[in-house]
Simulated scan of single mutants.
Amino acid sequence: MNILVVYTHPNHKSLSYAFLQKVIQGISENTHKPNMQVLDLYEEQFDPLLVFNETKRRRDMHKDPELAKYREQLMWADKLVFVYPIWWGRPPAMLLGYIDQMFSSNFAYRDTGGLLPEGLLKGKSAVCISMMKGPTFYPLFWLGNAHKILMRKALLQYVGIKKVKFFEFGNMESPKGKQEKKLNKVFQYFKTLAY
């Protein structure tokens, strides 16, 4: 199995980074020996800004040479793992900028003329690991589950990725947030992940 971990947080002393380390540790200790690549969007200095003009057109984004290595990573991966905080009820703008550019027409999906496109990333699976200051029930009851709907339906299922697992952790800045227990849960998941 090939696993691409996409990490989005500017601070390597954050709890988000601690979750990233548990993902890496779990994959490294997995007896099935999956292959892993880690893409740290801030460390990579990924440019999340979309630019369209006379020479750079949206319809050509799927063959933009500046994004070639990121397309290769996505094609290589069997499983995508996204690690990020929840800010304002959604993933960070940096991750959304990555999604805007990488999940492009004629690479991640193809228009068919019907209601839904053909997902070109089918056969892959995804794991979304997110953490937030507010309580765990906040996104469900206050925001109508907007984060999960965005990631699962508006993005991943649209491009053909049907199998999506969520670890959505709340109260992460509270002394009673059970951070170690949640970190260990993520570690154990990846340590025991089978094909």
Rank of each mutant, 00 (worst) to 15 (best):
M1H: 03
G134I: 03
N30I: 05
Y42M: 07
R57I: 06
Y42K: 00
W87E: 04
T192G: 03
G113N: 09
S14T: 03
I129P: 03
M132Y: 10
F187G: 02
V159G: 08
F46T: 00
Q45A: 06
F19T: 03
D64N: 15
G97P: 04
P91E: 15
K133A: 14
M1L: 12
F52I: 13
E29R: 13
A194V: 11
S130R: 09
V164G: 07
V81Q: 11
G177M: 04
E72Y: 11
L49H: 09
S174H: 09
F166C: 07
A108M: 06
M102Q: 15
I24S: 14
A146L: 06
Y7C: 02
K33S: 10
Q179S: 05
D64M: 05
I86W: 04
V23Y: 03
G113A: 08
Q45H: 13
M102K: 07
F137C: 03
K178C: 01
N2T: 05
T192F: 03
V51A: 08
K153D: 14
A77Y: 08
L120V: 02
L120P: 02
G119E: 12
Y70I: 03
L39R: 04
I129S: 05
F169V: 06
R90V: 10
F169A: 02
R58G: 11
L115M: 11
S104N: 02
S16C: 15
N145E: 09
V186Y: 05
A146C: 05
H12Q: 13
E180H: 08
Q188C: 12
N35H: 13
E180M: 07
L49A: 09
M36E: 06
K153L: 08
F82E: 00
E29C: 08
Y189R: 00
Y7K: 00
V83M: 10
L140N: 07
A194D: 11
G113Q: 07
V5D: 06
F19C: 05
K56A: 05
D111Y: 15
F46Q: 00
K63E: 14
K176G: 02
K13P: 00
L50D: 04
G170V: 10
N106H: 14
W142G: 00
K122T: 13
R71W: 13
S16V: 13
K162R: 12
V127A: 10
D40L: 07
S130G: 14
H32Q: 13
Y109V: 01
Q157F: 12
L116M: 13
F187D: 01
K69G: 01
A18L: 08
S16K: 02
I86V: 11
L156P: 00
S130H: 12
S125C: 11
A68W: 09
Y158S: 06
T55D: 09
S105L: 13
N2V: 04
L50Y: 00
G119K: 11
S105W: 14
F103N: 01
E72T: 15
N171C: 09
M172C: 14
F82S: 00
